[in-house]
Design a protein around this nucleic acid. Sequence first.
DNA 1: CGTAGCCTTGAAGGTGATCAATGTTTGTGG
DNA 2: CCACAAACATTGATCACCTTCAAGGCTACG
Lengths: 231, 231
Amino acid sequence: MKSFETNIIEKISHFEIFQTMEHLRLEKALFNAVVQNFKHRELVYRAGDRAQSFCIVVEGAIKLIRHSPKGEDRIMHFAVQGDIVGGLLMNQPDSTVYPISAKSMGPTLVVSVPKSTFKEFWQSDVYLQSKLNSLLYKRMSNIQDEKTMSSSPLKVRLASLLIKHLDQDSTTSQPLSLSLTRQEIADSLGVAVESVIRVMSEWHDDGTIRRSVEKGPEYIDVKKLIQNIEN
Amino acid sequence: MKSFETNIIEKISHFEIFQTMEHLRLEKALFNAVVQNFKHRELVYRAGDRAQSFCIVVEGAIKLIRHSPKGEDRIMHFAVQGDIVGGLLMNQPDSTVYPISAKSMGPTLVVSVPKSTFKEFWQSDVYLQSKLNSLLYKRMSNIQDEKTMSSSPLKVRLASLLIKHLDQDSTTSQPLSLSLTRQEIADSLGVAVESVIRVMSEWHDDGTIRRSVEKGPEYIDVKKLIQNIEN
DNA sequence: CGTAGCCTTGAAGGTGATCAATGTTTGTGG
DNA sequence: CCACAAACATTGATCACCTTCAAGGCTACG
């Protein structure tokens, strides 16, 4: 934890949620907030702990994980730059615990805002509340989309997940905006790793997925991908 | 559509979301609202229509349905007394359409509130916004729970759904708070009707589910149910 | 009294889970 | 810098669970 730097404020002020906010209000909204740095695979929040703060992802990414009774993990959401983690919980009673664990994916920088600041500033700020609502609405839509496809074959669901993580809606070949392991993809879809590997190996063979450099990011040929799942 | 009656206001004022609200504020919150009555299986909202109003369920129940491209339906949520349908959308831009269809389940009475009232009163009311957040949070938790169990065998997911729809958390035998057809259960779980029927037939045979009267409601023996799925 | 919605059962078949074994890469501590 | 552990990737074989298709019955309702 280190104290605030202006360049971070600067960066945050461009996030969609704060875009129309003046500097002064933004500083109030971040009162007592601290910057936190995480390496790869570090715990940001642990499921079951009291929810005393929420955070804004400034750099890197965080995966939100639910633990099933059988010890399996399910990934609920990948939070990337500009995303807010745990924001919904702040409206809940003080005794509320995080329902999920949050883990960093690669080097990650977040701004952690204490619940007290939420109560003093966010809760009474109509603009922020409505922005939080929007954010939540998007996440909800996402999960509902997934549920709608729950009985589609794995290939379709996997394709949909990949497309969702592309930067633009183009039909050209492009890399994922966030590098995911096969395990993470599997945990996100709720299937076995092996199943994911089998499908993606096939797509590697027919050129739907390519690597320009050895060990480099994987490029998705969207056009081919869509062709693929339509058969 | 008929004009407002005091006994409806009376009833609404006891819903959790309005509980601590004075009468005057409640009337403002329901400015220009209308009462709507639906019979069985009527369309309350149609997916794709402009979202110009939201509604509060006063009596009966409404199922929220997503249509998959293949013509299958997935039920996202069963809204019962006190629930709000479409409330999240009111924070979104005017061009937003309902992402779901809403259908009544049995005779249903709702209060339909126009978007204009939301903008004038709800949006600037911190208390209501935070209540909406809470509501959304609960629904989100629910869907996430389901996603967490997505790879559990059908028996487990079905049991979990049944338990969720019991009135109390007792271990005695009790009926569902909402009568569901097998088809609705299947659409909610994202499986085939036949699969649901097979499991429930089995549970009828071993006494986990019983009917006190022919055609009456089905009583769930929770203790037995839990025993059942633990094997 | 016919249609639409719902419930039921059986048989056949496929998708994805599970288990097992093995290789690769990355990070850690001696 | 090497050895070892931990995370990640891969492939094959087997099998359970659930889907799909088909056929039929029941009940409510206009």
